[in-house]
Simulated assay, not measured.
Amino acid sequence: MTTHLEVLQNALGTALGERVGTSVALGEVTLTVKAEDYLAVMQTLRDDPSLHFEQLLDLCGVDYLTYGDGAWTGLRYAAVSHLLSVKHNWRVRVRVFAPDDEMPLLPSVIGIWRSVNWYEREAFDLLGILFEGHNDLRRILTDYGFIGHPFRKDFPVSGYVEMRYDPEQKRVIYQPVTIEPRENVPRVIREEHYGMK
């Protein structure tokens, strides 16, 4: 007797062949796709009647710079999508790595699933992953004048600039961060008979 997961794996293998790497962990299937095969694989996942992943639920960007405590030697940036087939009642995760760490560029799947619009914008805004073919790739969570991408592992915790209201100019101004690093030493209280009656 085959399980629901095995049926999904067989359907994926038949439809996609050698274009994807497949792994299963905790009852979930993850497909790893090369950037050059990404659009074709995503189109097949949606249009093949044996798969029929009609919904893209989520796409997020991932920075693998410090993954595994720095033991990661692969490409740095990836986009990870979660797809749902209501018809077959199954889900799949698709991971694609951007081939260039200096300029992470991936094809947009907005022509396949319109729901990806804001997700690709978020991955661009927070991680700097560019999606070729996206018709409105602009910041969505940070300010338009924001410098950098705050979810990158090498982005400074305090950022590069800070904003404050200047009462003399009667407007918000941006200036370099003025936080001085400091060390907090906790005060320790020691009592001889603490907790004893």
Score class of each variant (00 low, 15 high):
G68L: 10
V116D: 01
D136T: 05
T44A: 15
L31T: 06
V92F: 00
Y119G: 04
I112V: 13
T30R: 05
G133K: 13
N184T: 02
I140S: 15
T22W: 01
L12S: 04
P167L: 04
S23D: 03
A40D: 04
G133C: 14
T2P: 13
L106S: 09
T30N: 04
D100P: 10
E132M: 06
N184P: 00
S115Q: 10
S81P: 01
I112H: 10
T44W: 05
V41N: 11
W72E: 08
R46T: 07
H134Q: 07
D166N: 10
E168I: 09
P186F: 12
K87V: 05
A15E: 12
A78S: 09
L8N: 01
V185W: 08
D125V: 08
Y194M: 10
L5P: 03
H193G: 07
G159T: 11
H193W: 14
R190M: 06
G133H: 15
D166A: 05
R190I: 03
M103H: 15
F124V: 07
E120F: 03
V172F: 13
R93I: 08
Y77V: 07
M103K: 14
D69E: 15
G145E: 11
R190L: 06
V172S: 10
E191K: 05
D143E: 12
P176T: 02
R19M: 11
F124K: 00
E191Y: 10
Y174W: 09
L39P: 01
A79I: 00
Y194D: 12
V29C: 03
L75C: 04
G111A: 06
F155S: 13
R76G: 02
T73P: 11
L5S: 02
T30C: 04
W118D: 12
E54N: 09
V92Q: 09
R190E: 12
G128N: 08
H134S: 07
G148W: 13
V20Y: 00
N89I: 04
H134D: 13
H88C: 12
F151A: 14
S115V: 10
W113T: 11
V96I: 04
F155R: 08
L12F: 02
L26Y: 01
L31E: 05
F131D: 08
R138D: 02
Y38P: 02
